[in-house]
């Protein structure tokens, strides 16, 4: 089953780093999973927990949030707040047993095209192993 399962992964990418890294990966002809749908945000801290929960409840199999390395945020401290919010959300999902392992926070700088490729490939494999989001055919859980 894992073989024909094509996950749907949402990636929130920071404009200043991870989004540029995705570009670089593309222009360097590095492999990026086709199952990744990217959403560009101006800073990783723009991602509200509600965006992540919403993606999950609507059936996304995995959600990636990628931003600048700590200390390198274009707005100085945005990603430190991102990390706190992500940890908080992770704890909530863990406590309610709502697939915490489907959510990931990565730091990928603009020059790390290779890292972008590796992180997304690894995350896609990890999600393929987990299988489809169990909420897919649950219209009442939304």
């Amino acid at each position: 089953m894992a073989n024909n399962f094509k996950p749907n992964i949402i990636g929130f990418l920071c404009n200043w780093c991870s989004y540029a890294a995705a570009d670089l990966a593309g222009s360097s002809k590095l492999e990026v999973p086709a199952t990744l749908t990217t959403i560009r945000v101006m800073c990783s801290s723009r991602v509200d927990p509600v965006h992540i929960i919403s993606a999950y409840l609507q059936g996304a199999d995995g959600v990636l949030i990628a931003g600048c390395h700590p200390g390198d945020c274009h707005y100085q401290t945005g990603n430190y707040y991102t990390r706190r919010r992500f940890a908080l959300l992770h704890k909530i999902m863990e406590t309610f047993k709502l697939d915490p392992e489907r959510f990931r926070l990565s730091w990928i700088s603009a020059s790390e095209g290779k890292r972008f490729s590796e992180v997304t490939k690894e995350f896609a494999e990890h999600i393929e192993k987990l299988g489809p989001n169990p909420l897919k055919n649950k219209p009442f859980i939304e």
């Binding site: 700590p70 200390g71 401290t77 430190y80 707040y81 990390r83 706190r84 919010r85 992500f86 940890a87 908080l88 992770h90 990931r104 926070l105 990565s106 730091w107 890292r115 590796e118 992180v119 690894e122 995350f123």
Partner: peptide, 19 residues
């Protein structure tokens, strides 16, 4: 309130260690 502040060196267990 904890989400209105941060420490530089913390919560690494929630960051991706891959790649």
């Amino acid at each position: 309130i904890p989400i209105l502040t941060y420490k530089e060196d913390e919560l690494h267990e929630y960051e991706d260690s891959k790649g």
